[in-house]
């Protein structure tokens, strides 16, 4: 479920089924079972109306290399029947308004990606589907695309579905996340839901001279712990509570050798989800 106006990160390792799902949504693959609803209506019965409000960039951009950026956009403008001024608008939006008569086949990879996004935006869609749009781009190019998408979403309120196999890459961009592996959805929700999972998966490690006795003491104080490699793992607490627990253990004669945070970042949670 992609909420209106959201930026939805569609994540999964290579071969998880991201492109297949996106192709199904666009009708480029015949579905075998189930149904697909876009804008709350079934795709099969409303294919043309749905595609009229959808822009897409699946894998590498589809550009006619013998045509200029303007001509490439004009090819699609004829179909979408949008005003000619829209071509200059989207070219300006993606920073390609000065490419003139240069054929798109001579563009750099970053320029091609940006032209691909311009094509996807030409019909002023309500839904933008981008399949790994930063593939093959250098860090600067990735940053440029990210900023561009943020701006488009903020200015036009377009819902954006962006697939990636790297959570770190889109973490700063998305409001919602869906994680897929082996064709099954493992997680779906807001980025804050995922972050909550992160918090739950985080903890604090206590290294003491007697892990079993330490566990018993903490249990008496209502705290569930786990023992791993002679260390105690407790849920993430506020620093104040941690120091209270430390004092309690010391008062009961336990020597505390080390207290350190266990940081499960989003990438780790993502990896845990897909590897489970």
């Amino acid at each position: 479920m992609v909420p209106k106006g959201s930026i939805y990160g569609f994540l999964g390792p290579n071969g998880a089924g991201k492109t297949t799902t996106l192709r199904l949504i666009l009708g480029l693959l015949k579905r075998q079972t189930g149904s697909i609803n876009v804008f709350n209506v079934p795709f099969d019965e409303n294919r043309i109306e749905i595609l009229n409000q959808t822009g897409s960039l699946i894998e590498s951009p589809s550009l006619y290399s013998h045509l200029t950026a303007y001509e490439n956009l004009n090819v699609l403008r004829k179909i979408y029947q949008c005003p000619e001024s829209r071509i200059n608008d989207v070219l300006e939006l993606v920073g390609l308004s000065n490419t003139g008569k240069k054929k798109s086949g001579l563009f750099s990879l970053g320029m091609k990606q940006r032209l691909g996004i311009a094509i996807a935006l030409l019909n002023n869609p309500a839904l933008l589907i981008l399949d790994e749009p930063t593939n093959g781009l250098d860090p600067n190019g990735i940053l440029e695309i990210r900023e561009l998408l943020k701006r488009i979403n903020a200015e036009s309120g377009i819902a954006i579905v962006i697939s990636s196999h790297l959570l770190s890459e889109i973490e700063k961009l998305v409001s919602h996340v869906g994680i897929i592996n082996n064709g099954a959805m493992l997680f779906q929700g807001t980025l804050s839901d995922l972050k909550r999972q992160k918090l739950q998966a985080s903890g604090v490690l206590f290294k003491t001279n007697d892990a079993i006795r330490s566990q018993m003491i903490l249990k008496e104080n209502g705290i569930d712990t786990q023992i791993s490699d002679d260390s105690l793992i407790i849920p993430a607490f506020e620093p104040k509570q941690i120091s209270l627990l430390n004092r309690k253990l010391m008062e009961d004669g336990i020597e505390v050798h080390e207290i350190s945070p266990i940081n499960n970042d989003l990438e780790k949670i993502f990896m845990n989800l897909v590897s489970n």
Binding site: I58, S62, L76
Partner: peptide, 9 residues
């Protein structure tokens, strides 16, 4: 470009 052509309305 087939994917682009076939995902136009």
């Amino acid at each position: 470009a087939w994917k682009q052509t076939l995902s136009t309305p």
